[in-house]
Amino acid sequence: MDPKNKKILIVEDDQFLREFYQELLSTEGFVVDVAADGEIANTKIHQGGFDLIMLDIMLPKKDGLQILRDYKTNPPAVENGPIVVLTNLGQDTIIKQAFDLGASGYIVKSALNPDQVLDEIHNYLKVNA
């Protein structure tokens, strides 16, 4: 699988983390797009065409669950790959809700090392390849 063909959208409001993931994934060879708030994210997700979307839950303007709800009720013309929710520990119900709304998985940001995050991303892409 060639990462160069894979488009990944990173939705994260924290600038450092957003740029970190961007750098990590770009270095790995992925085509990376970013969104810093819920509205931008929503627009980009509805344009479609991403192989993977990493979606933070707590976002300004529109939170991750709302974005998932929109996506589920109003799917874009151009499909996206799996949506993986970026969460923190202790958000069991949020994770459950996210799954109910169509999320494919979750990544506990604080629990994983960057290389573990990369492993996860590769896994999701592989499963959906």
């Binding site: 924290d14 450092f16 983390l17 970190f20 750098e23 990590l24 707590m58 923190n88 202790g90 940001k109 604080s110 090392n113 960057p114 290389d115």
Partner: peptide, 17 residues
């Protein structure tokens, strides 16, 4: 905890990098 974890995650991530 969320607010704490976000910068800590950034610290860890960059240190790891």
């Amino acid at each position: 905890s969320h607010e704490l974890r976000t910068p800590m995650t950034a610290v860890r991530s960059y240190a790891w990098m």
